[in-house]
Structure formats: structure tokens, C-alpha cells
Nucleic acid binder design. Structure first.
Length: 596
RNA sequence: GCGCUCGUAGCUCAGUAGGAUAGAGCGUCGGUUUCCUAAACCGAAGGUCACAGGUUCGAAUCCUGUCGGGCGUACCA
């Protein structure tokens, strides 16, 4: 189903062409800035008048004279400098409601040309727990995937886990040296059993200890490097086994977090650094052959066009260190080739924090210069940092990264407190279920509702507030609608049947019409959100919907309404619930709850 | 130094392509409950859009400069 705004835009563009002969002129249609101006406005006449050196109001008159839109809108009005104001006919709104009702996707339309889109997001580090620094990439990336999929694209999720590099040689060597393994060090079976008892917390401690030792102890350093070589060459089964165990143990941690957060990422989405490790030398060779890579200060570098350092000299993109090791630049290049050649990507999206902007600009330039990404669109989607109440990056009191598990546990705990207070009579199971949905939902929703590109201040109190643009507010709106349904059934109202008999919704009350107009704009909001991958457009839409529903709920009794208007009101409830549910669950991956 | 990015109400933030009197939430003040969940609703006050120029019929938005914050800037990712 096509969004109204698109239909209006097309009509106006056509009218402009008839009035002026200008082809493909932008209709400049936006939602009205103020309800008193109507529902939509076109700002096209002003810009066009300047271009054509005529009077904007007169031009607007001419456009209106040619405008064929009376099936949708009331008589257009010209206001101010030459705005064309449009107000939807309530008959049109009513018909659209029925179309939405018949559409599983509630008015979200598919793209004309589906593409294969690779989305690289989350990317946790192995041997460490997920922390707050991974939150945004993980949930924003997931939302982007959901939107692209709903729009009909083929989406390939790629989790570029950090599972390779010197640090794993260091960690493996440390594990070898731990007394618990020493005595069994010739016995593969026992060693596997021993490491099976290691938790991710143990690994984190070992990681820290190992790094310290690496920096202090030269013998250890030598051994650790040997382990790196063993990893690279697969020459020592025990070393490989240890590494695999480390990865498996880490996966348990992040898979647990993904499941809690409702993130659609699984083992099969993993293409970590190790996956590309054997392709790196080839990358460097190929770039050398192409004449793009050269040695500089001992390192192999590409100097991509258009990048300068502090002295105004070409800026290097280092693909091999002077000690021969490869870097994430090399891995990322290998990943680009894999995604284009093997995964057949038309577009690759990277979801990382804004600090990596320069890296990706250079990476994309190199890939283009090498001719590896001729027909592939490369996009870096950035986001800001999560800050604490002190406006500094969120850390624990001791200065460590806040673990995602602890953060989410705390959110659920606080939500549980609210449930206990508001609804003490619910069963334990139900309280827990609600607390989970509200707590986790609050964290995700708070992130989504901020502009992706800016930093935001993390606050449990704000995200769990019952008022304002929060998950609990949305979930409450949904629960109230569901409650109407239950009460209706209790009263013996056959809701299914009433919904079926609505042939022409009757939108007599302002609150009904306003809610209906919001409902038919879901597809439009979706298009705005996906255009720039901005989830806050979705939350803004959903919040406005919930507000309009609340106003309706207050002004218009549903179950006690007379039988001629009750079906329409039930329909409005039904569609509001469906839209909130679709938006929260299918787009944002946040649970709705029938009771709270 | 150079580059990127941000500066909007007391607070947290929106602001789609340059459009009308700059919006929302919180907080503050006032009101609403014999009625489907008041975790709600309605109303009010609150602004030099960091500052100064410029382009334009029109600028929070574009350009230049200044001030202030964050980030990045050759072998971490």
C-alpha cells in the first residue's frame, strides 16, 4: 500500500508539470507544521516561483487549478508566502483504514527493486563480556536489518567478531602456564574438560593477567608469539583447541545477551576476523600488484586519494605492519571482497561508532580504487556514545566498561519494582514476564528514540518512566487496548464479528479522526526511518500514535458506545494495537505485553 | 595544527529537502476519576536555536569567521 504522502506528491508534481511545463519538479510535500494548516503541505510553489521569476502565490493558484486530488483531499488552500495546504477527506481516511486492516504489513510497502544487503554489526570481542560499548551497534544494526527485510530486501547479517590476533596467542600461552593445565598439558581430553569449567569471567581475568605478563616478561612474550604462529599455521592442535574453547565460551555470553535483547544473530552469522585470516596476505599482494600498496617506514601502506595527514602529506592506510602482522584494515578489505564476490552484496552497511569514520572512508576509497567495489554501495552508519549522568562515557565507579548483562539485569530489577508497586496481585510468573519486557524494552527504546548520530545520557529513571516517550508508555497503551478486548469478550461482545461488519468506518469525533489519520501514516513513517536508518523516526511515530490513542481512549468510550459507532471504535483499537505491536516487535524487537 | 562532529526551554532531546508563530517529554503551575488499567488525559508558563557576519522573499537548517565541548589524526579495533 502506498503512503498518502507519495500519492499527494505525485499529484502535485503532475499539476506542476501541467501548470509550468516543468518536468519532475519536486512537490516538496511534508506533514503540515501545524494541525490548523491541515494534514500535509506543499512548499513547491515558493522555490519554483523564484526559479521562474514569478509570484509564488499566483503560481500556487495555477498548480491548484491543475491539481487532481479531490478523491483524497478537501479543497486545497493557499496560505502565507505560497504554501499549499491540504486536508484529508475523512471518507478517504476511512477507506484507508480498511485497506490497512486488510494489509498484514499495515501499509509498509516493498521496494520496487530488492537488493542483497550485507549488514555488519555488533562485533563483540572474544574473551570479554559484552559491554555497553556494544549496545548501540547491536540494537541499531538489528533494527536496520529488520527494516530492510520488511522492505523486501535480502539481508545478510554479518557478525564480525574479534576472534583473532596477538591477544589470543597471549591468552593461550597464559592458559598453558596455569597450574590447572600444567599437569595435563600432554592430555588433550583433560585439557578440554578443564577449560570447560572456565567461565567468561575467568577468561576476562586471565586476559588481563596475560596482557600484564606479556608486557613485562620477555620469555612469555616469545612463547605467546609462538602460539600466534601456531594459531595461524594450525600446527598445534592443542593451541587451536584452546582457542576454540575461548571462542565457544565467549559465544555463550554474547548469544545469551542477543537472546535477551531479541537480536536476530546466531552462530551462522559469524564471520569473524579469523575467517579472513588466510586471505590477508593475498590482499596485500593484490594491492601491491595493482600498484596501490607501497612500503613506507617499514609498513605496507595504501595512500588513498584525498586523505592528508597533519603535515598535508598523503595519509597512509596501513595494511601490514613492519613486523609483518596484518591489521583490521586488511581484514576489512578481505571482508569487502568476500561480501561482494561470495555473498553477492549490492550494498554493505557497517554499523559502528562515529569514531571509526575516517577508517571507513579510507577503507571504502581503497576498495573503490582497487576496483573491488565497482557496483557495490558501501555505507558507514555511525552512532554516538552512551554517556553517564556526568556526560562522560558510561563507566562503572572503578572506571571499567559497564557489562551489558549487569546493565540489563538492573533494568529488569527496577522494572520489577514498579510492577510490584503498581500491580501486586499478578502472579509471580506474570510479574517476571512484565518486568523483563519493560526493563529490556526500556533500554532498547531509550536508545532508539535518541537521534542515532548524537551521544545520549543513559538514565534508568528516564527510560523506565511511565510518562513520556518510553517503552513503558508504549507498552501501557498496548496493554490498555488489550484490556478493552478482554472486557468486551466478558460483556459478550463478539469483537471479531463487529470488526468484520465495518464497511465504512464512521469518524465523527476529532479524536477518532486524528487517531485514524495517524494509523494510515505508518508506511510513511517507516519510509522516513529507513531512508536514513533512523529508528527515532519510528519511536516518534509510535509515541504520537500512543498519545493519539490515549486522547481517543479518554474522549471516546468503546464498549459502551452505541452499536452504530462501536464497530468503528473497535476497529481503531484493533489497528492501533496491531500497529504498536508491529512497530515495537517487528521493527524494534521490543516485546509488547497484554497486561501490565 | 588539520579533519570530523556537536552547541536548540531549568533538564533530556526532536526538528525530514531552506518555509508559516522553533516542537516534544520531564520538571513547574492549574485542572480532570460514579466511566473500558490515572503507568492516563486536558491546559498554562517557559527560547537571543552558542556568538558575529553573509546568501535568500524566507535560515536552527546553507556559507564564512569566533567561542566552547566531544572525537579522530602511521603500524589497536
Amino acid at each position: 500500500m502506498r503512503p498518502v504522502i507519495d500519492t499527494i506528491s505525485q499529484s502535485i508534481s503532475a499539476a506542476i508539470e501541467k501548470a509550468t511545463g516543468q518536468k519532475d519538479a519536486s512537490a516538496m510535500v511534508t506533514p503540515a507544521t501545524d494541525a490548523k494548516f491541515g494534514d500535509y503541505q506543499s512548499n513547491a510553489a515558493m522555490g519554483l516561483a523564484k526559479q521562474l521569476k514569478t509570484n509564488p502565490r499566483q503560481l500556487a493558484e495555477k498548480i491548484i487549478a491543475e491539481l487532481e486530488i479531490d478523491d483524497i483531499c478537501q479543497e486545497p488552500e493557499i496560505a502565507g508566502a505560497g504554501f499549499i495546504n491540504l486536508r484529508l477527506k475523512s471518507d478517504f481516511v476511512a477507506e484507508s483504514l480498511l485497506k490497512i486492516k486488510a494489509d498484514k504489513k499495515l501499509g509498509i510497502e516493498k521496494v520496487k527493486k530488492p537488493r542483497t544487503v550485507v549488514v555488519d554489526f555488533s562485533g563483540p570481542n572474544i574473551a570479554k563480556q559484552m559491554h555497553v560499548g556494544h549496545l548501540r551497534s547491536t540494537i541499531i544494526g538489528d533494527c536496520i536489518c529488520r527494516m530492510l527485510e520488511l522492505a523486501g530486501n535480502k539481508v545478510i547479517r554479518q557478525n564480525h567478531i574479534g576472534d583473532w590476533g596477538t591477544q589470543f596467542g597471549v591468552l593461550v600461552q597464559h592458559l598453558y602456564e596455569l597450574s590447572v593445565f600444567k599437569k595435563e598439558d600432554e592430555n588433550l581430553q583433560s585439557l578440554e574438560e578443564a577449560i570447560d569449567t572456565l567461565s567468561i569471567e575467568d577468561l576476562e581475568v586471565f586476559y588481563r593477567e596475560a596482557t600484564e605478563q606479556y608486557n613485562l616478561d620477555d620469555t612469555f612474550k616469545k612463547q605467546a608469539r609462538k602460539r600466534v604462529v601456531e594459531l595461524h599455521t594450525h600446527s598445534e592442535p592443542l593451541t587451536l583447541k584452546l582457542w576454540e574453547h575461548i571462542v565457544d565460551e565467549s559465544r555463550k555470553n554474547y548469544q545469551f545477551i542477543y537472546d535477551i535483547l531479541g537480536i536476530n544473530l546466531h552462530k551462522e552469522n559469524e564471520r569473524g576476523e579469523s575467517f579472513y585470516s588466510e586471505k590477508l596476505a593475498g590482499i596485500v599482494e593484490d594491492l601491491k600488484k595493482l600498484g596501490l600498496a607501497e612500503k613506507s617506514d617499514g609498513a605496507i601502506c595504501v595512500f588513498p586519494e584525498g586523505f592528508k595527514n597533519k603535515e598535508g602529506e598523503p595519509l597512509p592506510f596501513i595494511i601490514q605492519k613492519s613486523d609483518g602482522a596484518f591489521l583490521y584494515a586488511t581484514t576489512d578489505l578481505a571482508a569487502i571482497r568476500y561480501r561482494i564476490n561470495e555473498l553477492k552484496a549490492d550494498k554493505i552497511i557497517y554499523v559502528t561508532d562515529a569514531r571509526q569514520k575516517l577508517h571507513f572512508e579510507m577503507l571504502f576509497t581503497v576498495a573503490k580504487q582497487a576496483g573491488w567495489a565497482k557496483d557495490t554501495e558501501l555505507v558507514h552508519i555511525t552512532f554516538g556514545s552512551v554517556l553517564g549522568e556526568d556526560s562522560k562515557p558510561l563507566k562503572t565507579r572503578s572506571g571499567e566498561n559497564v557489562k551489558l548483562k549487569e546493565l540489563l539485569d538492573e533494568a529488569v530489577k527496577r522494572a520489577r519494582g514498579v510492577v510490584e508497586e503498581k500491580n501486586p496481585d499478578l502472579s509471580e510468573d506474570e510479574k517476571e514476564k512484565i518486568a523483563r519486557a519493560v526493563g529490556i524494552g526500556a533500554v532498547k527504546y531509550a536508545d532508539y528514540c535518541n537521534n542515532r548520530t548524537s551521544d545520549y545520557i543513559f538514565s534508568f529513571d528516564k527510560m523506565l518512566a511511565m510518562d513520556g516517550n518510553t517503552a513503558p508508555y508504549m507498552q501501557y497503551a498496548y496493554a490498555r487496548i488489550k484490556s478493552i478486548g478482554r472486557k468486551g469478550e466478558e460483556k459478550g461482545i463478539n469483537i471479531e464479528k463487529e470488526l468484520k461488519i465495518v464497511k465504512k468506518p464512521y469518524l465523527g469525533e476529532d479524536a477518532e479522526l486524528a487517531l485514524a489519520k495517524q494509523l494510515i501514516r505508518y508506511g510513511e513513517a517507516f519510509n522516513c526511518a529507513i531512508a536514513d536508518f533512523k529508528p527515532n523516526f519510528l519511536t516518534a511515530y509510535l509515541f504520537e500514535l500512543a498519545q493519539k490513542f490515549s486522547a481517543f481512549y479518554n474522549a471516546c468510550p468503546v464498549l459502551d458506545a452505541s452499536e452504530d459507532i462501536r464497530p468503528t471504535r473497535l476497529l481503531l483499537c484493533e489497528l492501533t494495537a496491531a500497529t504498536i505491536q508491529h512497530g515495537m516487535e517487528d521493527l524494534l524487537g521490543i516485546e509488547t505485553i497484554k497486561r501490565m
